[in-house]
């Protein structure tokens, strides 16, 4: 056997093994994904339902286009929506409740990938409780003339949540004004 053909055998063995490992792990990942897909979707839906019922505790929700109408004894008491926006570390997914008078009922962060221990505090009650009852004009960070205190060390994450909520409120109010005309 010549020198180059020995080299070829070594090379081909590494190629075969690496290909095999990639194929097997890839296959296992595909199986895991399929096994867990439904359960993950269910878990995510449960999270959304949980967030909605925390916002309007005694209401029933009727899905309407891309938002939910919150009904209590058949009467409209507000709107809720699930929105996504960009945070500091990735997507922030939040549930927002809006009262009929155009103020915020409550905000819940469903998922995020902000820095653990710092930005992750924007999902905490202490930060989110500030949103309750705020109007469109008040929905800015204090240092930008609004009424919301940023989480220490996490201005970008705080601003991201405030922006998501403000934009959504603006959009919803525009839509309601249109509907009234």
């Amino acid at each position: 056997m010549s020198k180059s053909s020995v080299l070829d055998v070594i090379k081909s063995k590494s190629v075969v093994v690496l290909t095999l490992i990639c194929l097997i792990t890839g296959g296992m990942l595909a199986v895991t994904y399929n096994l867990t897909r439904e359960r993950i979707a269910e878990a995510e839906q449960a999270e959304i339902n949980q967030a909605l019922s925390e916002i309007f505790p005694s209401a029933e929700f009727v899905e309407e286009n891309d938002y939910y109408m919150a009904l209590e004894n058949g009467e409209l008491i507000g709107y809720a929506m699930i929105v996504e926006g960009r945070g500091f570390g990735g997507k922030i997914k939040a549930a927002i409740g809006i009262r009929l008078d155009g103020t915020i009922q409550r905000v819940r962060v469903i998922s995020h990938s902000e820095t653990p221990g710092l930005g992750s505090k924007v999902a905490g009650d202490e930060f989110l409780a500030q949103f309750e009852g705020k109007t469109l004009e008040e929905l800015k960070l204090k240092k930008e003339g609004g009424e919301i205190d940023a989480v220490t060390g996490a201005t970008i994450s705080s601003r991201a949540v405030v922006d998501i909520v403000r934009e959504e409120l603006q959009k919803m109010m525009g839509r309601l004004a249109e509907a009234q005309e």
């Binding site: 895991t32 867990t36 897909r37 359960r39 993950i40 878990a43 449960a46 999270e47």
Partner: peptide, 8 residues
């Protein structure tokens, strides 16, 4: 994936 699906 497993933890997300089976233990939220």
């Amino acid at each position: 994936l497993f933890i997300h699906g089976y233990s939220p």
